[in-house]
């Protein structure tokens, strides 16, 4: 069925409005970051990139970025390992407690993150662990691993178990099956799960607030500076964070594209 001209026009305008509604606030942050004035006021009188320069030179900023990056990278790697095996247990294998597992694993997503953060903080305290960015990694994992697992599980559901059986039947051992069949087939799921894990950790505020202790991640710092001691460094770092995320997504696409191209090249010469 083809939509009428009127419908299409209405939908077009509606779409534009939605996008504007969603992204205009971000644009205003962008403007704030290039204002030379110390306090934000529209219209901006003098544009300047001085805050970006300061951000790049500031040791606080590089420390913040390093902390956020460390947390996000570790969370991504660990959650992917859990997600890979968890998704196989979730979607592929019949075992006694599968039903319980499928429900339990969703539980952390349903807790408000502030409650989860508080609970974890109290838990760390009672164990006598001093919170640092490493405890934040644990906290992020509690919340992010289920999401990563679900993303990989969706891929695992569309997986014909006969593929592994066939490989085995032709002489492949358990590790070979994993390397040659299971892993490559789950790869698209793993790439998107990794991307999600990184971005969710990178942008997470409530869990980090409770569990980083003396360390500070980028979102935490942004919040602290909003509450007291605002400077245009806040929107500047905000924009840098968004651009960083965006670059990561581009990088992931490039990676997938490269893998595909590489495979085709290998096929051609094989």
């Amino acid at each position: 069925m083809k939509a009428s001209r009127l419908t299409r026009n209405v939908l077009f305008v509606y779409g534009i409005l939605m996008i504007a509604f969603l992204y205009l606030p971000l644009v205003s942050v962008g403007f704030a970051s290039v204002s030379q004035a110390r306090y934000l006021s529209f219209p901006i009188r003098r544009y300047s990139t001085k805050w970006y320069g300061e951000a790049f030179e500031s040791s606080t900023v590089s420390e913040l970025l390093l902390t956020s990056l460390s947390v996000a990278v570790v969370v991504t790697i660990v959650s992917l390992v859990f997600a890979f095996f968890g998704a196989l247990a979730f979607a592929r294998y019949q075992w006694r407690f599968r039903n319980v597992f499928q429900k339990l694993i969703l539980l952390p997503i349903f807790f408000p993150q502030t409650v989860l953060g508080l609970a974890l903080l109290m838990w760390f305290n009672s164990l006598g662990i001093i919170p640092t960015w490493k405890t934040a990694v644990v906290a992020h994992l509690v919340w992010i691993t289920p999401i990563a697992t679900l993303i990989v599980a969706i891929r695992a559901y569309s997986f014909d178990p006969a593929l592994e059986e066939a490989a085995r039947d032709m002489g492949a051992g358990t590790l070979t099956v994993l390397r040659e069949i299971t892993l490559p087939l789950l790869m698209p799921g793993l790439v998107s799960a990794g991307l999600f894990a990184f971005l969710l950790s990178w942008g997470n505020f409530p869990l980090s607030l409770f569990t980083t202790g003396a360390d500070s991640t980028l979102p935490e710092w942004l919040y602290a500076k909003m509450v007291s001691g605002y400077s245009p460094l806040v929107p500047t770092l905000g924009i840098m964070s968004v651009v960083g995320s965006f670059l990561l997504i581009l990088f992931a696409f490039a990676l997938v594209w490269l893998m595909r191209a590489n495979k085709e090249a290998r096929t051609a010469q094989d």
């Binding site: 059986e165 066939a166 085995r168 039947d169 032709m170 002489g171 492949a172 051992g173």
Partner: peptide
């Protein structure tokens, strides 16, 4: 299965 000389 991976050691049997059969295939399916």
């Amino acid at each position: 299965a991976n050691k049997r000389p059969t295939c399916m």
